[in-house]
């Protein structure tokens, strides 16, 4: 008996639609986030993450409706990130049915936001999303903004320690070097963050082969997030779970997924 590793598909949503293309033949409408959420739930996803990349206020309002409809139909934890700037933004998302929120840029600009959210809603609702890359900083990893294009001027491990001290409940670590390459998660980065993080760690960026998932777990990740390998059907969630179960990792519903 032990805690299972979590497999988390991530859906990029803008103006109420899933973007970045999805390639499922068994969907009526490949762009509908609620339908995709239900399908991933059926396939054994342990959580779902929506990343709202809407540029407009109207787009964000639509996301609230997507969250609402998803939470009413899919009974697994739902994390929503993207564009969260204030405690009120968090309140709106939680009321719409999100179980957790993930914040990124706003916390870099104003770290106290972490403590404000944790104090009001508890650490368990708050995921800090960190876009990191290899660089000549003290730890060898730095935080980036603008999708990995700009340095935030902060050492990644120092930021992890600070975020934990301010009260985050979980870390979503995105490797901007590995993102989209399908060449494997950044194992060194996961190991380095695991050393200093006392909260659950979700690895993101680079998932390709099935071995990549187990390698990230061996490095210390508690959960694995992936987008394109699932959306394009390179692996079904059940395939990843069966592989991990066959290699003695604790997974939920490996047999039925």
């Amino acid at each position: 008996m032990s805690l299972s590793v979590r497999i988390i598909p991530c859906l990029d949503v803008t103006d109420g639609r899933v973007v970045k293309g999805v390639n499922f033949t068994d969907l009526v409408d490949a762009g509908d986030p609620v339908e995709m959420a239900a399908l991933y739930n059926k396939e054994g996803a342990d959580e779902l993450t929506f990343l709202d990349i809407s540029a407009s206020v109207a787009g964000r309002e639509t996301t609230l409706d997507v969250v609402r409809r998803t939470a009413e139909q899919v009974f697994i934890p739902l994390t929503v990130g993207g564009g969260i700037r204030t405690v009120e933004d968090v309140d709106r998302l939680l009321r719409a049915g999100a179980d957790k929120v993930s914040i990124n840029t706003a916390a870099i600009a104003r770290p106290e936001l972490i403590a404000e959210i944790a104090d009001r809603f508890g650490s368990q609702v708050l995921v800090i999303s960190i876009d990191a890359r290899r660089a000549r900083t003290e730890s060898g990893f730095e935080v980036t903004t603008h999708g990995g294009r700009q340095s935030a001027g902060i050492d990644a491990l120092a930021w992890v320690e600070k975020a934990c001290a301010l009260g985050v409940g979980e870390i979503l670590l995105n490797s901007m070097d590995a993102d989209g390459t399908r060449a494997g998660y950044d194992i060194g980065m996961i190991k380095a963050v695991r050393e200093v993080a006392k909260v659950p760690l979700i690895a993101s960026g680079g998932a390709g082969a099935l071995e990549d998932f187990s390698a990230a777990l061996d490095a210390g990740a508690d959960a694995l997030l992936a987008a394109s390998v699932f959306h394009f059907g390179v692996h079904r969630i059940g395939d990843v779970k069966k592989y991990l179960a066959a290699h003695n990792y604790s997974v939920r519903n490996a047999a039925t997924a």
């Binding site: 342990d46 409940g169 659950p200 939920r252």
Partner: peptide
């Protein structure tokens, strides 16, 4: 426990 919160799917006896 070294890592908290206890977050995720666990079995029950």
């Amino acid at each position: 426990a070294p890592i908290l919160p206890h977050m995720g799917w666990n079995t029950v006896r």
